[in-house]
Amino acid sequence: METPIIEVIGLEKAFGDHMVLKGISMTVYPKEVVVVIGPSGSGKSTLLRCLNRLNEPTNGKILFQGYDIMSPDIDINVVRSQMNMVFQNFNLFMHLSVKKNVTLALTSVKKITQEEADRIADETLLKVGLTEKADAYPGQLSGGQQQRVAIARALAMDPKVILFDEPTSALDPELIGEVLDVMKKLAESGMTMVVVTHEMGFAREMADRVIFMDEGVIAESGPPEEIFTNPKNERTRIFLKRILKEIEDMDPLKPKYETPELAPEAEGVKAAEEGYKWSQEHKEPDEQKRWLGFKFLKRDKKK
């Protein structure tokens, strides 16, 4: 077997008296995409932030390519330059242009010349599809674009692994797709990734392994097919049921038919058209829109 990129042994983390991580052991192999899921407060983000020591672990061992990163002989900055992180809130450097955001660590950590760094920045910005935004500032970009820049910033360092800390949680729903697309492309290109996310679709599609965390321990871990279709742990089952229902509930236009074959896709559109026609005939113009919504709600409630 290959040497793992990250090996975590008995990791514990306490904030004061509160134990957040209670003995986590896990391994990440090269080119693997490991997705960490679990209810909020289960310690997913803390686990991720312990991996690069943004949070100092209380106990346990973390090996990065075989080296104990807790050891005093290890320069944590060198480890971090090879284990980049993408944050929930992007955390782009607001006072620097997109390109400078990407090149800052290249020139100041890797000591690459500015010209070479610029070249690398152009390349990575092309990969995330933001070449034309190179001279813009983060404050001028949408959330999705900012997160793509953050991914480019991590990618430019040519890291061994990228840690994603809920990369889509702060995004408007319509901007999530562009970020997930970039992440999928990354995964397909063979990047090793540890992803904390609530995007079950991404987990299902891209994960080599899904880790389900609950109350500071790894409750279950395995390939996505197994976790999603046949979870062994009761808590995993409850969590998945809840979160999948939430996702469905978030889509207001999706009728919740129990038997899909009885629900032709056009039904919603048909209903809308009928309702609109009816309202045209019977209602005052300013009430037409309200009526349309009402009709939809009623249909949904009935089911």
Binding site: N77, V79, M94, H95
Partner: peptide, 27 residues
Amino acid sequence: IPKGQMEAARSMGLTYNQSMFKVIIPQ
């Protein structure tokens, strides 16, 4: 300056002083 700025700088391998002088203080 939001804490995330320092975290992002440190997470990329910048030292505390580098993060301070290149990221935090200019803002």
